[in-house]
Design a protein around this nucleic acid. Structure first.
Length: 569
RNA sequence: UGGGGUGUGGCCAAGCGGUAAGGCACGGGACUUUGGAUCCCGCAUUCGUAGGUUCGAAUCCUACCGCCCCAGCCA
């Protein structure tokens, strides 16, 4: 026999790169050090979860450090509300930054000093061009730019102007600090990028202390260097910024060595896309603001908050992330894979309950008048420690409307006239009579039960193919159920044939079921707990649902349904 | 038409000169008091295309093609 193939840890090109760095001793004394750098201007989504988990797990597997650092360099867009939600979401995901919570704004003073040093060394200058002029001077993708008339301003004048910018002597947009690099570079980012701009705007942390704020390209690499980030991971669209990132790091090493903890390097990977949804902050914001969903935490949203409220677990998200992998190629992961990961996680950890989503009444004609029998049911099949519970059974029950068919197709194993079916953990019943209302819809089924077929003690010799769930009429707990479907009908809403992505919104993405009858235990369930409603799916007791007078269960994900699949084909 | 990326089955993704991992999806079967779960089996003669190098190429070379990103004082 060949020896068992060793189970390898999930790897990707970044993991491999770090491993090689370590083997070569390229990091010197530094531990592997990563960071997640959100801008607090919106809610985190599952795409961010990929970055968070990637950075965190890399630091963890290499015994390194992981920072949470808010990139808060633009006060006009950023708010404390988002800082709070981001912290909550990352914590919930399980990424632990320990004491290492930082803000870019923590280093504003040091950054200003760095800017001063750039000026003194002749690497930066104050430019008086207005925004339109800067754009015009920049050139185009195919034509080189022109040098600013202020490019050769003397150092002393630059210093004086920059200090006065800080003091607030100039209005927004009147001047900027620019790096002196190369106006003819094929890479637009190198055409004398803006380092600082004037923003007379109150910052959520520093208040009115500053009116000049650093730009991302200046701020980010320098923050990395200050924190000792060894591997600065970001998405592909920053590839073009890498030369500038390196330029800033090099200048820091050259001019400000006493604060440089590590010569940080940037590595890019493809961001995550998902079928049947959109992922950009801008689009998600529109969904919220235009009322297509009920807020950032609407369970239909791909936000962390939305997924959480739908009942998805952080473990399922981590598993999904790992299964999707990391590469540099543009990709769109299949939502079916996420669903799979969710089911897989919930399968073994979720207690079962019976709930009838669309009830039809069943009267058991030969059941002893007034008798109530408590039946024992497993909480989690295959998991004895999860125990059992008692569920009341009686002569009047409800079953699922689609578990009965008057004229069933071939291979339909459920209830039909004169046919038998097993009631889960109870008895086998036979449909004797169908009662309809004036519209012709079935209003009641009259059935007989076979006392010899009691679950666990069946000595009738009967074999039935179908097993259905039920709930005793007198004991049923009324609950509300939210059935969620994809928010978009198109696999890739961004590629809408006509109109924008909102034209692809699924009008049936939310179905509210208000006549659901569940077994009694549902009424006592703790908000925030998860259940599998037998044969129906996984559900989450919404802790934030509006007051409805009854529990509200959100469907996290349906169970696989091979019968429904067969019906379609 | 400038610069930077990227193309492996329906969707992801390994592979790094020795003869296409794995997962999801899909199809078939077994089992089943959830048509769930679980378990089997099947699923790329071929790696964007065309040439070339080599005993041997998804891997090296050349050319071409497709797709993505970049012209914020956003990040």
């Amino acid at each position: 026999m060949p020896e068992q193939k060793e189970t390898e840890a999930k790897t990707n090109f970044i993991y491999t790169m770090i491993k090689e760095d370590l083997e070569k001793g390229a990091l010197g004394e530094s531990p592997v050090h990563t960071r997640f750098p959100p801008e607090p201007n919106g809610y985190l989504h599952i795409g961010h979860a990929k970055a968070i988990l990637l950075n965190y797990s890399l630091a963890k597997t290499f015994n390194g450090l992981f920072n949470l650092r808010f990139d808060d360099t633009n006060p006009v867009k950023e708010e404390q509300e988002f800082v709070d939600s981001i912290i909550e979401d990352i914590r919930w995901l399980g990424a632990d930054w320990g004491e290492r919570l930082f803000f870019s704004s923590d280093y504003f003073e040091t950054k200003f000093e760095f800017a001063l040093r750039l000026i003194r060394a002749g690497y930066a200058y104050v430019c008086d061009l207005d925004p339109d002029q800067v754009r015009a001077y920049r050139g185009t993708l195919t034509e080189p730019g022109k040098e600013s008339p202020f490019r050769e301003r003397p150092v002393e004048e630059n210093l004086d102007l920059f200090e006065r910018m800080r003091k607030g002597e100039f209005p927004n947009g009147s001047r900027v600090l620019r790096a002196k690099i190369d106006m003819s570079s094929g890479n637009l980012n190198m055409r004398d990028p803006v380092l600082y701009r004037i923003l007379h705007s109150s910052h959520h942390r520093t208040g009115d202390q500053w009116c000049v704020y650093p730009m991302y390209d200046f701020d980010h690499p320098f923050s990395d260097v200050l924190e000792g980030i060894t591997h600065s991971l970001c998405s592909i669209e920053y590839s073009d910024h890498r030369p500038l990132y390196d330029w800033i790091v090099d200048r820091a090493v050259e001019l400000f060595p006493e604060v440089v903890k590590y010569r940080s390097r940037q590595t890019e990977f493809a961001r995550l896309n998902l079928t049947y949804t959109v992922m950009s902050k801008r689009k998600l914001r529109r969904l919220v603001e235009e009322g297509h969903v009920n807020g950032w935490d609407d369970p239909r949203m791909p936000t962390i908050a939305g997924l959480r409220r739908r009942g998805v677990t952080p473990e399922a998200i981590a598993d999904f992330q790992e299964k999707v992998g990391v590469s540099r190629a543009d990709s769109t992961a299949d939502l079916a894979l996420l669903d799979y990961c969710i089911r897989q996680d919930l399968e073994t950890r979720t207690p079962r309950l019976m709930a009838v989503l669309d009830p039809v009444r069943v009267v058991i004609t030969n059941w002893p008048e007034g008798k109530i029998e408590d039946l024992e049911m497993e909480n989690i099949p295959g998991d004895e420690e999860a125990g059992t519970r008692m569920v009341p059974f009686s002569g009047e029950i409800y079953i699922e409307r689609d578990d009965f068919m008057e004229d069933p197709p071939k291979k339909y194993f459920r209830l039909a006239p004169d046919r038998e079916v097993r009631l889960k953990s109870a008895y086998i019943i036979k449909c004797e009579e169908v009662i309809k209302d004036e519209n012709g819809t079935v209003s009641e089924l009259r059935c007989s039960y076979d006392p010899l077929t009691k679950s666990g003690a069946d000595n009738s010799g009967k074999k039935v193919k179908g097993v259905i769930h039920w709930v005793s009429a007198a004991h049923a707990a009324p609950v509300r159920v939210n059935i969620y479907d994809n928010l978009f009908t198109a696999e890739n809403p961004e590629e809408a044939e006509e109109g924008d992505f909102t034209s692809q919104i699924n009008p049936h993405s939310l179905l509210v079921l208000d006549n659901v009858l569940a077994e009694p235990a549902a009424a006592e369930a703790i908000p925030g707990s998860r259940f599998q409603f037998l044969r129906k799916g996984y559900f989450y007791l919404d802790p934030d649902a509006a007051e409805t007078g009854k529990p509200v269960f959100n469907r996290t994900v349906p169970l696989r349904d091979s019968w429904a699949k067969k019906q379609k084909s």
